[in-house]
Simulated scan of single mutants.
Amino acid sequence: MMSIKSWIHWCSLGLLWLVLAGCGWQLRGGGSYEGPKAINLVPEDRFAPLTLALVDAMHRSKVAATSDAPITLYLGDEELQKRVVAVTSIGSPAQYEMSLSATFRYQLHGDKTVAIPQVLSVERVFDFDPSATVAKSEEENTLLEEMRLELAQRILRQARHLAPLDGQAQP
């Protein structure tokens, strides 16, 4: 038999779940993908970190990477820019801004025109402590991986604007 305390606890959790679901809150990157179900991925470097992040994003969104897909994605190299945005009183860097960008273009199967390349970028600012260089280096690498995944997801989302999905008209 359930005690009143545990019953109240479960009711509170259920109410919290309903409130979060009702306001539209969802986990980051947890939205449903509404694009083509297959894409022909043609990267400049198939072992580049951005290419691997894009393959991961395609897998998570259940997008097949096949050469006979109706849409081809030509993925260029990523470009990372890092600049100091704040310094300490002794002149050492205290804060950096990182900008990760990539050039890509989509082309529909059978379309003879060359698609115009697009550039997307993701920016982040992070604090730097010269006395903890190893920890901050690991933090920078983790942040860069997150930026790549976000950039890959944004590139993938661009495909939904190209062609009707499964024979349906685009809104």
Rank of each mutant, 00 (worst) to 15 (best):
S131N: 12
L13N: 12
I155N: 00
I39A: 00
G24C: 09
I4M: 09
E44N: 08
P117W: 10
L108H: 12
M98A: 12
F126G: 03
M1S: 11
V85C: 06
A115V: 04
Q95S: 13
P130R: 07
A64N: 11
L143R: 05
L52N: 01
K112C: 11
Q26D: 07
Q118G: 12
A152T: 01
Q168M: 12
A94D: 08
V84F: 08
I4H: 09
H161M: 15
L54W: 00
V125Y: 14
I116V: 15
W17R: 15
V42E: 04
C11W: 13
P36V: 05
A94E: 06
S32F: 09
I71E: 00
F126V: 06
G110E: 04
A64C: 02
L120A: 06
H9S: 12
M1A: 11
R105T: 07
S12L: 14
A38H: 00
Y106D: 02
A169R: 08
L143N: 07
A53N: 00
K82S: 11
V55C: 06
Q153A: 04
A38W: 01
T133R: 11
L73F: 02
P117K: 08
R28V: 14
Q168G: 13
L50H: 01
T103F: 08
G22H: 08
D166C: 05
S67I: 12
P171Y: 01
L27W: 08
Q95Y: 05
A86T: 12
P70V: 06
R105M: 03
E97Y: 09
T103S: 13
K112T: 11
L50T: 00
R83N: 14
A115R: 02
L151Q: 01
L18W: 13
M58Y: 03
W10R: 12
E146N: 06
S89P: 10
G29H: 06
I8G: 09
I116G: 11
